[in-house]
Design a protein around this nucleic acid. Structure first.
Length: 1052
RNA sequence: GGGCCCGUAGCUUAGCCAGGUUGAGCGCACGGCUGAUAACCGUGAGGUCACGCGUUCAAAUCGCGUCGGGCCCA
């Protein structure tokens, strides 16, 4: 049986019940099992990093994923949905280091790498469990029991296999490169791991002495004085013109060379008082110059280096137009150095301190702290032209926030830049939502793609499976654990460091190969997720059946992150994109569009929203707040609004339940087909609407227009279902017998609710499950055990009647206009009116057969529809036109004016239509012409009007005894109903009621409706009179339109 | 400095792809309804559609530029 539902929508309580139901019944497993063998839908979960806490953005992310997967499952797809966890890398290392107070790698080595790895692993696993619980609360149905974890051996193998494949494809190489380097973590970091913010640094202008020209200098500018010891060249722009000037400062002259356009500004900064142009140099001539290093006698190596000038496009017309080149400390510098076979001089070690090569004075100095020393030395040697401070964007290690430096080190690279064009082809083959995410944003990123530095000099990561022979330099990449174990002749329980470090392999040369001590860049971990999640390479069958992924969805920051890393890893191993479609979603910002951050204190935790409102409400809110690819401005008000909306849905759902229960309604025996003939137009209308909704939502889902779906559903619930259909259907539910009219209403409501609840299931899974449990499972023990096992509803085209929908829309408009007009005329809706007149302006209005609906909703006895342009009879007001009357009547003018005032306006107008009119004053007739009066049309006081889209609606509020009797009856009914409520009576309870009305005329009116009143309030015993002695459990005095009415009621 | 997205009422937003009277919700003011009721409904005030220029009979919508916000890059 269907049950009644007590009380308001309590999301938390409902969700707890559904959660335990799902757990008890293993609903998730059943749902996935049910679709096995269906068309495959391979989803890959972008693995959140195991930080321990989910935030609003990750919640939104999982809600989108879950909604899409539930939708696909309802559409008979077998979905692959392993949840994923990103568990390696510096962030966790740093956390563990912090917990022990470690400062550098030496501390870790002292503590023991094996124990350190163990701590990292425990930390990651604990965080994973915490976050799993948080995701489950949201109703996110992924495979949480068997997630893919980047720390598992099977996952490590997927990374190994991929690297081996890249090696076979000749895309792996070791090389000296300038990399972003964190001197604290002592590791290379990826471009994507660099965080930029403003930092105040030195800004210095340095003079490099030209060889063979006395007192002549080329001027460069830099913000990193510590790189000066590594300078080997100067770059100039081949299109610029350079000037040689004789500059005067404090009576001393020197000859300076710099870009012609920048002379003035540089000399100003250098506080030169005067200068004279000696000549111009072309970029070509500039390249003939040689100079001495300004600190040549302090950095021994610099004495042996020849310093020249080279052309480079990247030189801009800023500062001096001459760029300091240190190939060991800059990316462009490095490339320029390679092109011109310059020495890649890098006198800085992995700890960020100068090495032996930097010379006696600088050795051991931390470079960022050496800036001041270098400046002082330049000053002392007279090579400093100017020195100041400058705030500019500078990169930092994203974990420990240490400013990064660039140093040339030997690293492993994937030669991604070679694949740029092929990657762009692949991107064009992927379907992007929105389209520009791929064609514009991602393509732009790929166009700038550089080789991928995949090695990190750390501990907690996937070890590089690269073994090299120290003797003959032979190198091999191992692809699987089995391969390694076969070669090593022993088992390895865990493929992490340090165990794997101890494995030595035989080299063909007879020597022993050692593992390259690095671990993978953590971005490489998640990059292989699409096949690692299928347990490839050990399970090839699944890979062949599922790969590549049908769908992934992540935030727009993942353009450079996971969208890219996956593409890169897939290109080097499989030569194609690992996904077929990508939905790029936005960021969660606060209600003012600011980033959520601890310092502003505007962070909203998803669980806070769940606790205050519920998971379904959070879900429906984030899905509906805006388009998925736009940033979400979180607003508590909007969440509350969503909550209110779902509450109305809940009320709509539960409103009919008591009657259905009372009548033992059984949809199985009494479905719509039995009542086809008894359906009212409004029933057919709501059925049309719900089927239109199904078709709209299905269409929008194809383009992942999730916000439009939520909007359509909300509109349907509020406008069509709650504000309209339920209002229309209410009186029918009170009919007591087995009237087909009532049963047709039940069947309609039932059909609509069940369809709607399935339609909402992917988005509000808890609420839908609860409603389905009652309405469907409550009636049919054999029904599918969960709404999430039902098929996605299909739109019943035969029920869609667009003309009827349009007519009803018109009826609603007229009805609203009528209530507007009533308000103007001061007539409450409770009081019936005799007539409502619809006066269309242009096009004729046809209500189809919805006349009775309109009458009911407007509480009107009659609806009159005028022809276009026609108006109801207006009051007319005559005003005399003195200018015209005066000249004709002269002395009698005053009498004429009075005659006009006294005349009947309608009569005058009628006469004037035929020519002249006659008006009378003091027994004398006067003839007047049309120009002597102005006739104004006024809506009569008893006919207030309001505008609607196609004209005006007039409401005739004139009262007569019959209408008044009805009005008073409704007033009395409402009060008795109110009192029934106060006594907490059930709908079907009978009462005894006595009503004492102090006014005889009103009593007489009420008596006309005595039977009606008694019926409406279910009073078996009903007395209506004057001076009655009131008894009953509840007696109350009421004021109805200024009359005292005393009512007493009693339950029988 | 470059790429992409966004800017509509006090707030949150729809409409923009496909040009044709800017539409909602919250909040505010007033009124109504009452067996969905710790709910609900109506009316009203409130918009130079960020700004400027262009295309067009017609621009919130298309194009260019400026300003502001977000993400990414340099």
């Amino acid at each position: 049986m269907i049950s009644e539902v007590a009380g308001q929508y309590n999301a938390q309580e409902l969700e707890n019940q559904i959660r335990s139901l799902w757990e008890k019944e293993e609903t998730y497993r059943k749902v996935r099992m049910q679709r096995v063998g269906g068309k495959k839908f391979f989803f890959v979960d972008g693995p959140p990093y195991t930080t321990g806490r989910i935030h609003l953005g990750t919640a939104w992310n999982k809600v989108i994923k879950d909604s899409v997967l539930r939708y696909k499952s309802m559409n008979s797809f077998e979905v692959k949905d392993r949840a994923g966890w990103d568990m390696h890398g510096l962030p966790i290392e740093v956390k563990v280091e912090e917990s022990f107070g470690f400062r550098n790698k030496k501390d870790i080595e002292t503590y023991g790498v094996d124990k350190f790895i163990q701590r990292c692993k425990e930390f990651a696993l604990r965080q994973k469990d915490d976050m799993t619980a948080q995701f489950k609360i949201l109703g996110a149905w992924l495979d949480w029991d068997d997630p893919y974890m980047t720390l598992k051996n099977e996952y490590l193998e997927a990374a190994w296999w991929t690297l081996k494949k890249a090696h076979e494809n000749n895309l792996l190489e070791r090389g000296l490169r300038v990399v972003n380097w964190c001197p604290r973590c002592e590791t290379a970091i990826a471009d994507s791991e660099v965080e930029y913010w403003d930092e105040t640094d030195y800004s210095i202008y340095v003079k490099f002495p030209i060889i063979g020209e006395e007192n002549t200098f080329i001027v460069i500018w830099t913000t990193t004085p510590w790189t000066i010891p590594a300078n080997v060249a100067v770059a100039v722009n081949p299109t610029f013109q350079y000037s040689k000037v004789r500059a005067i400062k404090d009576g001393r002259a020197e000859i300076l060379i710099m870009a012609s356009d920048l002379v003035e500004s540089v000399l100003k900064i250098g506080r030169y008082q005067d200068y004279e142009l000696l000549g111009v140099l072309s970029a070509q001539q500039m390249q003939e110059l040689k100079y001495n290093h300004p600190l040549g006698d302090m950095v021994p190596r610099q004495k042996e280096i020849v310093h020249g000038v080279y052309a480079a496009d990247f030189v801009t017309a800023e500062n001096t137009g001459c760029v300091h080149i240190a190939p060991g400390h800059g990316l462009e510098d490095y490339e320029l150095g390679l092109n011109h076979h310059l020495e890649i001089f890098c006198p800085v070690g992995e700890d960020g301190r100068y090495t032996e090569e930097a010379g006696e004075k600088y050795r051991g100095e931390y470079v960022k702290e050496a800036d001041g020393v270098v400046i002082a030395d330049l000053e002392e040697k007279g090579r400093l032209l100017a020195s100041g401070r400058l705030a500019h964007r500078y990169g930092h290690c994203w974990r420990c926030k240490t400013p990064i430096i660039f140093i040339a080190t030997s690293q492993w690279f994937l030669r991604i830049s070679d694949l740029r064009d092929r990657m762009l082809d692949e991107v064009a083959r992927v379907t992007w939502y929105p389209e520009w995410a791929g064609s514009a944003r991602f393509a732009d990123w790929i166009n700038n793609a550089r080789d991928w530095c995949i090695s990190r000099q750390r501990y907690w990561g996937i070890p590089l499976p690269i073994w090299t022979c120290p003797d003959c330099k032979h190198m091999e990449v191992i692809g699987t654990a089995a391969e390694l174990e076969a070669r090593a002749g022993r088992k390895l329980a865990d493929l992490h460091r340090p165990d794997v470090d101890s494995v030595l392999l035989d080299c063909p040369c007879g020597g022993k190969m050692k593992r390259s001590p690095d671990v993978f860049d953590v971005w490489f971990d998640s990059a292989v997720a699409s096949w690692a999640t299928l347990r490839f390479p050990s399970h090839e069958k699944d890979f062949n059946e599922w790969w590549p992924a049908d769908f992934i969805t992540e935030g727009h920051d993942q353009t450079r992150g996971w969208f890219y890393s996956q593409l890169g890893a897939s290109m080097v191993s499989f030569g194609r994109a690992p996904y077929k479609s990508v939905l790029m979603h936005g960021f969660t910002l606060d209600d003012q569009g600011r980033k959520m951050s601890k310092s502003i204190g505007n962070i909203v935790q998803p669980e806070e929203v769940v606790q205050k409102f519920g998971a379904d409400i959070l879900r429906f809110y984030v899905l509906g707040a805006n388009a998925p690819w736009e940033d979400l401005h979180f607003s508590w008000d909007a969440v509350e609004n969503t909550s209110r909306m779902l509450n109305i849905f809940w009320n709509a759902y539960r409103f009919a339940l008591p009657y259905m229960v009372l009548d033992k309604f059984d949809a199985k025996k009494a479905d719509l087909s039995k009542y086809e003939k008894s359906l009212r137009p409004e029933d057919r209308w709501i059925l049309s609407r719900v089927n239109s909704l199904v078709s709209d939502v299905t269409a929008e889902m194809e383009g992942y227009q999730l916000h439009r779906i939520v909007r359509s559903i909300s509109d349907f619930i509020l406008e069509d279902l709650s504000r309209w259909y339920i209002q229309l259907v209410r009186p029918r539910t009170w009919i007591e017998q087995d009237d087909p009219d009532k049963l047709a209403a039940y069947a309609t409501i039932y059909e609509v609710m069940v369809k709607l609840c399935k339609l909402m299931a992917p988005f509000t899974p808890f609420l839908s499950e609860a409603i389905y449990g009652n309405l469907v499972k409550g009636l049919d023990a054999a029904a599918l055990p969960s709404v999430h096992m039902c098929n996605w509803p299909s739109a019943d085209e035969a029920r869609i009647d667009k003309r009827l929908e349009a007519s009803m829309a018109l009826v609603r408009e007229v009805s609203m206009a009528a209530s507007n007009a009533r308000q103007k005329g001061g007539r409450k809706l409770r009081w019936p009116v005799s007539e409502i007149v619809i006066a269309p302006a242009k096009d004729a209005v046809d209500l189809d057969n919805l006349d009775s609906v309109l009458r009911g909703q407007t509480n009107a006895k009659k609806i009159t529809i005028l022809s276009p342009g026609e108006k109801p009879r207006m009051d007319l007001e005559l005003s005399p036109v003195h200018k015209k009357i005066g000249p004709v009547y002269k002395g009698e003018a005053r009498a004429v004016v009075q005659a006009i005032a006294a005349a009947d306006a309608f009569d005058v107008k009628k006469q004037l239509d035929g020519g002249e009119a006659t008006v009378t004053h003091a027994g004398k007739d006067y003839k007047i012409t049309a120009e002597m009066v102005q006739i104004k049309e006024l809506p009569p006081e008893n006919l207030p009007a309001a505008e609607f889209s196609r004209g005006y609606v007039y409401v005739d509020i004139t009262l007569n005894p019959e209408l008044e009797a009805e009005g008073y009856a409704r007033e009395i009914i409402r009060r008795i109903q109110d009192m029934r409520k106060e006594l907490d009576l059930r709908v079907e309870d009978q009462i005894r009621a006595m009503v004492d009305i102090e006014s005889k005329p009103i009593l007489d009116l009420a008596l006309l409706k005595k039977e009606h009143i008694a019926g409406e309030v279910r009073a078996k015993d009903f007395q209506l009179g004057l001076g009655l002695k009131l008894t009953g459990r509840l007696v109350k005095d009421w004021d109805i339109e200024g009359i005292c009415v005393r009512i007493g009621i009693d339950q029988i």
